[in-house]
Amino acid sequence: MPAKVYTDKDADLRVIKKKTLAIIGYGSQGHAHAQNLKDSGLNVIIGLYKKSKSAAVARKQGFEVFETAEAVERADVIMIAVPDMKQAEVYENDILPNLTEGKTLAFTHGLAIHFGLIEAPKGIDVIMVAPKGPGHVVRSQYVEGKGVPALIAINEGSSKDAKKVALAWAKGVGGTRAGVIETTFKEECETDLFGEQAVLCGGASALVMAGFETLVEAGYQPEMAYFECLHELKLIVDLMVESGISGMRFSISETAEWGDYISGPRVINAQSKKAMKAILKDIQTGKFTKNWVKEYKDGLPKYKQFIEDGQNHQIEKTGQRLRSLMPWVKKRNIKGTQASYN
């Protein structure tokens, strides 16, 4: 049975109209939620750590900025919009001591709640509002009078009003303009992690690099390998996003389509699916999160090595040179930047 899709008529901004909404962090999602909620006529404040570089930016954009503890104390609804691995520390130090009964704790992702990195006390509603798009798109679509689809979730033990607050928040950021689907912290977290690791990030990047290496090792020019295994990927992905997999196949040549049918299953096969199931099991059991928390606490040695190895791969050097020949491709030198508690 298809999931119910909530739209503008199902949400009421009056539910949070008289409340103070605090966004903790002013990064990608944080700034988008804050600006959209403010433009929806709601009272939004920003919570940041002392001497945060984002404080001046938030003030310039019309927000009152407080240190995190004070923002939590002042607010009725508090959204934690800092990176996953920083959330527990910020929560324990600045949020939990200032939570009082009746407040609502909100998240844009389910990891911290689902895997117990954060445990809210009784009397605190816990919700999630997760737009399915990066912050800059959440903002730009709102400004255009549109919206990005969003997910909401209500944690067990929350009050009967929690869903109304989640829907109102989703409406405030523009989600109900496109459509909102209710999920659970468990379902959102596990599917999100799996999609990132097995398909969107891990799977796609590993597939591209393996294809590039196969052609180069066979004696083909790295420039040709880059064009065929990386550059043209956007064309195919865009077609799938716009028209589905069948629509993509309809749009490409018959030769490419025939190759899709007979060769795709040779690369992504039963063994690949077995590996995907193992990845999913690691996510479901908490093994992935446990290992990631340990890596973070150890100072990220493997993580940093992975970054360095990836940046030094031949595909990156080839791509940098070829992208300079393509004026239509937007250039963004974001290599090596890391998310931070803004």
Results as ranks from 00 to 15, higher is better:
residue 209 M to H: 05
residue 313 H to K: 12
residue 311 Q to A: 13
residue 336 G to K: 13
residue 95 I to Y: 00
residue 152 I to Y: 01
residue 198 A to M: 00
residue 319 G to S: 11
residue 76 D to P: 08
residue 256 A to I: 10
residue 14 R to N: 15
residue 98 N to I: 05
residue 173 V to W: 00
residue 67 E to I: 11
residue 83 P to R: 03
residue 257 E to R: 13
residue 127 I to N: 03
residue 7 T to W: 08
residue 253 S to H: 10
residue 278 A to L: 14
residue 139 R to Y: 06
residue 105 L to V: 11
residue 119 E to K: 12
residue 142 Y to W: 14
residue 48 L to N: 06
residue 239 L to H: 05
residue 156 E to Q: 13
residue 332 R to P: 01
residue 164 K to M: 04
residue 51 K to I: 08
residue 169 W to R: 02
residue 222 P to Y: 04
residue 305 Q to N: 14
residue 170 A to H: 05
residue 97 P to T: 06
residue 285 T to C: 05
residue 328 W to H: 10
residue 180 V to W: 00
residue 277 K to A: 15
residue 84 D to P: 10
residue 302 K to D: 13
residue 152 I to A: 03
residue 265 P to W: 12
residue 14 R to A: 14
residue 55 A to G: 15
residue 278 A to K: 15
residue 38 K to H: 07
residue 139 R to I: 06
residue 71 A to N: 04
residue 275 A to H: 12
residue 76 D to R: 07
residue 170 A to I: 04
residue 92 E to K: 12
residue 317 K to D: 14
residue 61 Q to D: 15
residue 263 S to C: 15
residue 2 P to N: 11
residue 112 A to N: 14
residue 210 A to G: 01
residue 338 Q to P: 02
residue 258 W to D: 01
residue 60 K to L: 10
residue 38 K to N: 08
residue 232 E to C: 13
residue 325 L to N: 04
residue 193 L to N: 00
residue 242 E to I: 00
residue 153 A to V: 04
residue 12 D to V: 13
residue 287 K to N: 12
residue 138 V to R: 00
residue 13 L to D: 05
residue 40 S to A: 13
residue 23 I to S: 00
residue 18 K to L: 09
residue 215 L to R: 06
residue 156 E to M: 06
residue 141 Q to Y: 03
residue 305 Q to A: 13
